[in-house]
């Protein structure tokens, strides 16, 4: 059974998924932050592969991506860093990134290397379902990786069901049609999550975009299986001198 599936078998509510950009704030901080996230009680880690033009992300994540790239982070470098990480880290880890760097690395090689180091799933927001069905999906399956699609409040019921059918692990509910790091009206988000719940989808649902602290996590997580924090965590680790203590402080403020 996949680590992600196993997680949702054990825990069906208030799952906390935290995103950060690999190679940020420093090239060698990736594993340190992953360990700190696990120790602080995070259920799932979403590791961002930095890209020069991250269209679906807001300024905070773009800035962290540019710094990570300046630091020398690449997909090859990341896989090198991740070798052996499963000796220490047991929570599921998904890679999030954009298609262009993955295509240059080679899609098949990327999936093979990700699976080999112990990655559990992929989020590639600019890989459309059409291409996924026609070619890429088979490669993802062959390497036993989960693949997570995004849905938004604008996504029709028919399309939500299609994306749910193509996804495995979980479904990523974007809390409103918007880039990461924007303020949200949570009444609308809750109505949207209730609608998603009424569809009785096959995958668990994690809600992301606009969740930044204990209050916002508590406001939306109960209406899904949990939630994803990204930009707010990036801000927290950029301000702190020590990534481990900054991570501990941030996560314990969310969970306690």
């Amino acid at each position: 059974m996949s680590r992600i599936k196993d997680l949702f078998e054990r825990k069906k509510e208030n799952v906390l998924n935290v995103y950060f950009t690999a190679g940020y704030p420093s090239l060698e901080s990736t594993l340190e932050i992953m360990s700190a996230l696990q120790d602080a009680g995070v259920d799932l880690i979403e590791l961002g592969m930095p890209y020069s033009d991250p269209l679906a992300d807001g300024p905070v994540i773009q800035e962290s991506s540019l710094i990570a790239l300046d630091n020398g982070m690449t997909i090859a470098k990341l896989f090198e860093q991740l070798k052996g990480f499963r000796e220490k880290i047991h929570v599921p880890v998904v890679l999030m990134g954009y298609m262009n760097p993955v295509l240059q690395y080679g899609f098949e090689k990327f999936c093979a290397d990700a699976a080999a180091v112990g990655i559990d799933g992929l989020i590639l927001p600019d890989l459309p379902p059409l291409e996924f069905e026609q070619s890429h999906g088979a490669i993802v399956k062959k390497h036993a990786l989960d693949f997570i699609f995004l849905v938004t409040p604008e996504t029709s019921e028919e399309r939500v069901r299609k994306l749910d059918g193509l996804s495995s692990g979980f479904l990523y509910a974007v809390s409103s049609s918007s880039t990461t790091g924007k303020e949200k009206n949570f009444d609308d988000v809750i109505a949207y999550l209730k609608r998603l719940r009424s569809y009785q989808l096959t995958n668990p649902v994690l809600v992301g975009f606009g969740i930044k602290d204990k209050e916002t996590f508590g406001a939306v997580a109960p209406f899904a299986n949990g939630a994803i924090i990204g930009s707010a965590f990036i801000k927290a680790i950029s301000a702190g001198e020590n990534p481990t203590s900054a991570t501990q402080d941030f996560i314990s403020a969310v969970l306690n």
Binding site: M99, D126, L127, L150, T152, E154, S177
Partner: peptide
């Protein structure tokens, strides 16, 4: 060609 866009742009 094609349309390699995130779901937020799909609609």
């Amino acid at each position: 060609g094609g349309a390699y866009i995130p779901e937020m742009l799909y609609q």
